[in-house]
């Protein structure tokens, strides 16, 4: 009699455990699916995403000149490189770089270098766009915040930044007179 009772209660216990676990797991799934819209509301809104292309007229830019344009709230560097700068960028043993990449992989047209002007370390804007600003030891850009040096291809050469300056997706329009970023 006693044993029979124990087995019966053990059986109903496991059934209760099952019900409690199932209820708790469904509760957790429910809470998660309600939480997601709240978290997702913090992601970029549709109008923010809609501002994701910028067009630039390239005709006034002289060889050796750089301009800065805004794209997605960030500066984009456009440099019309000189022959010397292109040669410097190509005359590098890529295997020795911090983030190995050849100059050919980073440009569509060697004359035009297009970069997101945000240091890959902690997001400062490197100097080197304006005449007279420090261009660092590799003639490209220098980030004043924590001392990262970038070369004439925007590759990281020295300092704490882990990656090369990002290349945004872009294309040339109207016989190479207009640049569309994004």
């Amino acid at each position: 009699m006693a044993t029979k009772k124990t087995t019966k209660s053990a059986k109903s216990d496991s059934r209760r455990d099952f019900l409690a676990l199932t209820a708790a797991s469904f509760g957790a799934v429910g809470a998660g699916s309600v939480a997601w819209p709240f978290i997702n509301s913090m992601n970029p809104a549709k109008d923010t995403l809609a501002l994701s292309t910028t067009e630039v007229n390239l005709t006034p830019i002289q060889v050796g000149q750089s301009i800065t344009v805004m794209w997605r709230g960030k500066p984009v560097f456009i440099r019309r490189r000189t022959e010397k700068e292109i040669a410097e960028a190509r005359d590098v043993d890529t295997s020795k770089l911090i983030d190995p990449q050849s100059d050919e992989e980073r440009v569509q047209n060697p004359e035009w270098l297009v970069l997101v002007g945000v240091c890959t370390h902690l997001g400062c804007v490197p100097s080197g766009q304006k005449v007279g600003e420090s261009r660092g030891e590799y003639d490209g850009w220098f980030c004043p915040c924590h001392g990262s040096h970038y070369d004439t291809s925007g590759r990281i050469r020295k300092g704490p930044a882990p990656k090369n300056l990002a290349v945004p997706s872009y294309e040339f329009l109207n016989d190479n007179t207009t640049l569309k970023i994004g």
Binding site: I39, M42, N43, P44, A45, T48, R72, G73, K74, V118
Partner: peptide
């Protein structure tokens, strides 16, 4: 997610 955009901005 923290920014609500592609840089520190209005959101």
């Amino acid at each position: 997610l923290l920014w609500g955009g592609f840089s520190v901005d209005n959101p």
